[in-house]
């Protein structure tokens, strides 16, 4: 009796061990098939772009393409800066000070992709609607962004993303 018991336990162990090795094997065989869908090396090779700010006039906004996405560069007017700075943080769905979102207050640089479902918000052209807070308005599902690119109203959960950038000279900025 004891022996059969023992024999059965050893056999159970072998079953489990075989199944476990099989599962690991199958898993490692499947992984390449899943991972092939992630960004390939050429896509990953991060490109950075340089942009000449001297072409931008006060109140004007320019869109540049970076990693297949639009980047908004806005030369803000003093009124737009003051209104962005004046907002109390507890009024914001995603609280961030204006100062933490800019390196130089007059140049606001943002990834122009709505944090809701990825549309490009309107507000770059003078003729565009800019929403209730004077920044951008996303027509897809009605998100309103302020003059700091922060979400104020609508379904988007987060502020417009600030990309990594640095000033290589007074008038040139490198994004990425």
């Amino acid at each position: 009796m004891a022996e059969t018991q023992q024999g059965e336990t050893r056999r159970d162990f072998l079953y489990i061990a075989t199944a476990a090795v099989g599962a690991v094997g199958a898993g490692s065989a499947i992984w390449p098939l899943i991972d092939q869908m992630n960004p390939a090396a050429d896509v990953l090779a991060l490109s950075s772009i340089e942009f000449d700010l001297s072409t931008v006039e006060p109140g004007m906004a320019v869109t540049v393409k970076w990693r297949g996405k639009p980047v908004f560069v806005r030369y803000r007017t003093p009124e737009e800066i003051t209104s962005a700075e004046a907002v109390p943080l507890d009024e914001l769905p995603d609280p961030q000070t204006d100062a933490s979102r800019v390196q130089e207050a007059k140049y606001l640089i943002l990834v122009g992709v709505c944090t809701h479902l990825g549309c490009v918000p309107l507000g770059q052209k003078a003729s565009d609607p800019r929403g209730d807070y004077g920044g951008w308005f996303c027509p897809c599902h009605g998100s309103h962004y302020d003059t700091s690119g922060r979400i104020r109203k609508g379904p988007a959960p987060l502020n417009l993303f600030v990309p990594a950038y640095e000033f290589v000279s007074d008038t040139t900025v490198r994004i990425g």
């Binding site: 869908m37 960004p39 390939a40 896509v43 990693r67």
Partner: peptide, 17 residues
């Protein structure tokens, strides 16, 4: 989302798959 796209936006990789 990045995995579905195969990049940082909807692009050629997305169209192919």
């Amino acid at each position: 989302v990045t995995w579905l796209w195969g990049g940082f936006s909807v692009d050629n990789a997305t169209l192919n798959r």
